[in-house]
Design a binder for these strands. Sequence first.
DNA 1: GCATAATATTCAAAAAATCGAATATGTGAA
DNA 2: TTCACATATTCGATTTTTTGAATATTATGC
Lengths: 137, 137
Amino acid sequence: MADSRQQKATAELLKAFSHPTRLSILQTLAAGPRCVTDMEEILPARQANISQHLAVLRNARLVDYAQDGVLKCYYLCRPMLVKDLLTLMGRDEPMLIRTAAEIKAAKERLAEMNESTRSRGASASAINGVKRKSRGR
Amino acid sequence: MADSRQQKATAELLKAFSHPTRLSILQTLAAGPRCVTDMEEILPARQANISQHLAVLRNARLVDYAQDGVLKCYYLCRPMLVKDLLTLMGRDEPMLIRTAAEIKAAKERLAEMNESTRSRGASASAINGVKRKSRGR
DNA sequence: GCATAATATTCAAAAAATCGAATATGTGAA
DNA sequence: TTCACATATTCGATTTTTTGAATATTATGC
């Protein structure tokens, strides 16, 4: 049903990932917990900025911290999610190029599936693309 | 060496994913190719807007199209990437909560590993958190 | 050629993200 | 308490994103 709420939540979560500095932070934390000072030494960003990015990651519930004296030790709240996502993005997939003919065939297969699944024929023709507004293809 | 170029590229790619409408488009395309008119019927957005989002996805090389008469049939350039990412984001992982003690132990293990890996002891104490100084601007 | 459907692009305004600078808060040691 | 360090927050300026409206482009049938 492609829930619109879900899409919004997912988009927000992905946005938290979508910054080079935040990716670096996550990658660092994937190796183990770190306090902010540690990260300052590793990342090419100033303290305030790192703190700001950490706030974004906290809001997204990707990281949390435990206080250790004067230090705040950050760690990944969902290490599997983060690690798997980083791995995924590191992978490279050969770029696909499809022909119009291939696509036509695929669309027809898809349309048939939809046809048999739902008995409503109303929008099926539109999805199928058989005939739209008196103009074919 | 967490390559900064790579982080930037990854962040940009993730940004392309990070919008509810674009996620919906990708999810739709994950089921099979679609032309823009098809998507207009499915998505709660106007033609121009969908076209704009498709342009973003094209720039990110996540989708491409094949012309079929007057129609442009869009498809996923890297279906595995998209599908795996969508699956990953659908998964839910129990939120982790760590104590300061746990983290301290983890940090020490990590510091030891770094110690043995690189023979330079200089920044090891910083990583360990023994004694820190230096304020910068 | 012309009309039309499908799709893209341009433009401007509004909203959101980013960043540095300054400042504030919290914590342990002396 | 007071100090120093670690970290967070606020603020303002700049940049980027997002969107609707209007307009442009392209392919097809006539």
